[in-house]
Amino acid sequence: MFHQPMTFEHALDLRSELGTDATVINGGTDVVVAMNHGAIKPTTFIDVSRIKALRGIEKQNGHLIMGAGVTFADLGKMHFRALREASLSVGGPAIRNMGTIGGNIATASPAGDGCVALLAMNAEVQLSSKARGDRWMPLVDYFIDYRKTALADDELIKAVRVHNNPRSRWYKIGKRGAVNISLVCCAISQNENNKTELAFGCVGPIPKVAPKASALLTGETLTPELIDDVANLVTHEVAPIDDQRGTATYRRAMCSTLTKRLLTQLMEDAPKGDADA
């Protein structure tokens, strides 16, 4: 069966009724790849791509709330630098027209570029079910293990929110000039209280934050010495593995390199009082 609900409420009804028997699809950029590989063979779909409410971006109480159906193309126009650059690094334009932030969070790949940017921005994700209504949870708590998340079988991802005004930076190492899967990626954001968060992709089973490094930075003014300390510390906070895309040795070293590079950019750009654009 192919269900194409026009409202989120209808989608929740279907999800509640069908649970894991139905595959939720939006842009299809993960689901259909898996189908084409024969890894999954779904016969029942809930297509949430027609739900207009999921496509909205709005400001509310110092937050920016993005519907789960917001595409990477949409995010590529946003002023949050890390999220914008991360989104524009996903696939080519056609993929960005299809792929959504909700899908990225649902797939929960350790290489999910959007997830890494959002983690650094202390994002929260809103999960909804027919039975229990909406709940917000920190994105960091949402990721549990490799492709395992806090999303219940009757829940759908509704939205994700971030604080309105962080300064942020992003860097992804890939093997070529475009359409890259991360070898390693790093996002850093800093809010007005000088609270700085770091997040990494492809350094473990899930998109990863570095709480000890963040703690070391909290409330401090960035100096080259502090940046060096943090860059050393992060290598102990990540647990990359060897795979055919790259080795743990390289990835660990790159976490440190990218941390240093991005923090240095934040430090050097600070006097310019940069809006994130």
Binding site: R176, G177, A178, V179, Q244, R245
Partner: peptide
Amino acid sequence: DYIIPTIKD
């Protein structure tokens, strides 16, 4: 994962 050059390379 078999990476070939894009227009940006």
